[in-house]
Amino acid sequence: MKPGYVRRFSRTERTFHWVNAIGFFLLLATGLILYLPSLSADVGRRPLVKDVHFWGGIGWVAALALVAVLGDRSGLLRTARELDLFDREDVNWLRRRQPNEQARFNAGQKLNAALTAAFLVLFLVSGLLLWLGERDTRYRFASTVILHDGLLYASLVLLVGHLYLALIHPATRHALHGMVLGTVREDWARKHHARWDSGGRG
């Protein structure tokens, strides 16, 4: 670890994040080809794109499961617990009140994680229902396609916010360093995550 840096994300956490990101963008690209009429007309090959979208989705979830099983499982569980728990200062942070010093994750990041996970589950269930419904009327619901499309719009809102904070916003974009290399500057951590006990400081 470089001097002046502290470790924020383990290798397993980073792999989990990037597998999720790659899966999301693969499904977004193929999904938009299936969804937008002008793209559908230009690209064609709908049966092939549909197969890539469906099996890509299965592969995405399988890859996430594989990372969890083969990686540092207990570390991931500890992280999930951190994301689950909101204390008084987290609530204050959301309400723009004091005191609101944050630990390793701020309350916005915790909400983003909960919604991202929920959207993944709902994408998976509605996608499976669309696939099954094409084969068997018992799985056919009139609202499945509306749920799947609605999730697209909802997750685009989250994605735009996430990309803005990770790539553009000057105060927060250093977080990307943590998600790529695992470490963040100690002074940045003190400022934005003052209550985070990072263990061995560098």
Partner: peptide, 15 residues
């Protein structure tokens, strides 16, 4: 408080 799982479960149930 376990707000994270509450948000997760409520979103899944609502969806």
């Amino acid at each position: 408080r376990r707000i994270g799982r509450g948000v997760f479960l409520a979103t899944v149930a609502g969806g």
